[in-house]
Design a protein around this nucleic acid. Structure first.
Length: 487
RNA sequence: GGCCCCAUGGUCAAGAGGUUAAGACACGGCCCUUUCAAGGCUGUAACGGGGGUUCAAUUCCCCCUGGGGUCACCA
């Protein structure tokens, strides 16, 4: 009877989700799917001071957008509801009391001030601070009296002072620490809320989480959790610690300003699919050279044993490449629909946005760069005539003028303003004049755009601008070139 | 600083004693071509150092170095 695999994503609602966090959610989800198990969403809001309004909605929205669907959670319920820790508040204390009875925990009345001063002393003597267990020696009666008197207190876990604790991690292997290095961590805070350290273990057990998947920053506190499981006599879960995603400089990504959140990436014009695909490969590799993975494919291919140990740098260049690949692979219609909001923001001229999308699709890596690429369409800005001169195209001011003068009437008299018609006639004209296509088309593109580099060529731009505007811009070019050549 | 983890090109990474040490991004070149892209071909570029073990180490062990994480009534 194989036990059902159950993983959970347990974010605290403190704002936007950064990419490391999202990567955890993704892997947790994938592990559940790969094993045909369940993926649970649990909100860890035990820190009343850090709560951010609306943050829970951000979590729902993000998961939904990503297609990372949970099987149980606050919004859809499940057999172990509630899935919000603040709503489970009353259930933690009895577990802590059970530990006190077993001699595995004890109440502590030490004030923040006392702890701070102890810390200060340690600091001065450059020792590692560890709670001195002052309250462990309090008599039963004194403890009783002070609790009855309503004195604020916390409950601490009593760590063994000798021996070692070893736990096994699926990706990092066996990790052993000396018990004497473990502090008597706080289980229940003086406001009655459990700490993450406690709530996490209790809930994971209660919700039958089989695989605890989280970032490797938790590696060093896992021995304490293991000891907690042991104190309760509970079975420990399978641990899967994920290598950190770090910034290009190697340091940890934090929620502090400047570090990319999922929302930021969306705003910059990255596609959800591209982000997920990229994230899936940051810390995991398939057993093939495949790089493009849909979520559905990942649900089949993902494997815990191919998760790597070393931290991975978040590389924007690679993300851009993924994004561009996804953009290119879209149908023209799909591309147009994602590009549309960006086009509407930047195009003021009365032109076909569909036509612009067509020239943009192969040339866009991130949607946000669209605005910068299409500015020439709105209006012909003043430009330097120098850009008519192009060595490889063999164009000069003089022959550019000739080409424009020859092309103008041809375009003027075109029966239909279509790419095909322009193409046939302009190339025909070039052939008749016995010049290279480039010598004809470079000046036209230059005159039409006023830019040295544009997405799309002369003909595509002419199509977008329309006959009237195209002819007008060409005439501007002719006039300016004429003046320059005659000068 | 204590403890823990990590270590293949600039980056993501295959590799799991014997390989010409994959592939991708980025970068360079060529081709294609009406600019730019896209596409095709191609090039530069890596096993941090020192000891072992072994006939043979990128691969196993130890040390060093380097990097990271963590040491809260935050998660």
């Amino acid at each position: 009877m194989a036990q059902e695999v159950r993983t959970r994503y347990a974010p605290s609602p403190t704002g936007y989700i950064h990419i490391g966090n999202l990567r955890s959610a993704l892997y947790e989800y994938l592990i559940a799917r790969v094993y045909g198990g369940k993926f649970i969403l649990r909100i860890e809001d035990t820190d009343q001071e850090r709560l951010v309004a609306g943050a829970v909605d951000v979590i729902y929205r993000t998961l939904k957008l990503c297609g990372i669907h949970h099987d149980e959670g606050p919004d859809i319920g499940g057999p172990y509801a509630p899935y919000v820790q603040s709503e489970r508040k009353s259930s933690y204390r009895p577990f802590a009391e059970e530990l006190i009875e077993k001699g595995e925990a004890y109440p502590c009345f030490c004030t923040k001030e006392r702890l701070d001063s102890l810390r200060e002393v340690s600091e001065k003597e450059s020792r590692t601070f560890q709670y001195d267990r002052y309250c462990l020696s309090l008599s039963q009666t004194e403890v009783q009296a002070r609790i009855s008197a309503g004195e604020p207190h916390v409950i601490r876990q009593k760590m063994p002072r000798e021996g070692f604790t070893t736990f096994s991690d699926t990706v990092y292997g066996d990790i052993t620490v000396e018990n004497s290095d473990l502090e008597d961590q706080i289980l229940i805070k003086s406001d009655g809320f459990p700490t993450y350290n406690f709530a996490n273990v209790v809930d994971d057990h209660l919700m039958h989480i089989t695989h605890v998947v989280r970032g490797s920053e938790y590696l060093s506190s896992t021995p304490k959790y293991n000891l907690l499981y042991q104190a309760f006599g509970w079975e420990t879960p399978v641990y899967v610690h994920l290598p950190l995603i770090v910034k290009p400089d190697g340091s940890k990504i934090s929620k502090r300003k400047g570090d990319a959140t999922f929302e930021d990436l969306l705003k910059e014009g990255y596609l959800v699919e591209a982000i997920l695909n990229y994230l899936s490969l940051l810390g995991w590799s398939p057993d093939s050279n495949q790089e493009i993975f849909s979520l559905a494919e990942l649900e089949k291919s993902f494997s815990i044993n191919r998760i790597s140990k070393s931290p991975s740098a978040f590389d924007t260049d690679k993300l851009r490449w993924f994004n561009a690949a996804y953009l290119r692979a879209m149908t023209p219609e799909a591309f147009h629909s994602v590009a549309l909001p960006w086009l509407q923001k930047s195009i003021t001229a009365n032109v076909s946005l569909e036509a612009i999308s067509r020239i943009l699709q192969q040339r866009t890596e991130v949607l946000s760069e669209i605005g910068d690429k299409v500015g020439f369409i709105n209006a012909l800005e003043d430009y330097s005539l120098d850009i008519y001169v192009h060595k490889k195209m063999k164009t000069t001011l003089e022959n550019s003028l000739l080409s424009l003068k020859a092309a103008l009437p041809v375009l003027e008299n075109l029966p239909e303003w279509t790419v095909q018609a322009m193409h046939d006639n302009l190339l025909g004209l070039a052939a008749a004049m016995e010049i290279k296509n480039g010598q004809m088309l470079w000046p036209i593109r230059t005159a039409l755009s006023g830019w040295e580099v544009t997405p799309g060529g002369a003909i595509e731009i002419a199509e977008i601008l329309g006959r009237e505007e195209s002819l007008r811009r060409m005439q501007v070019g002719i006039d300016r070139l004429t003046a320059a050549v005659n000068a």
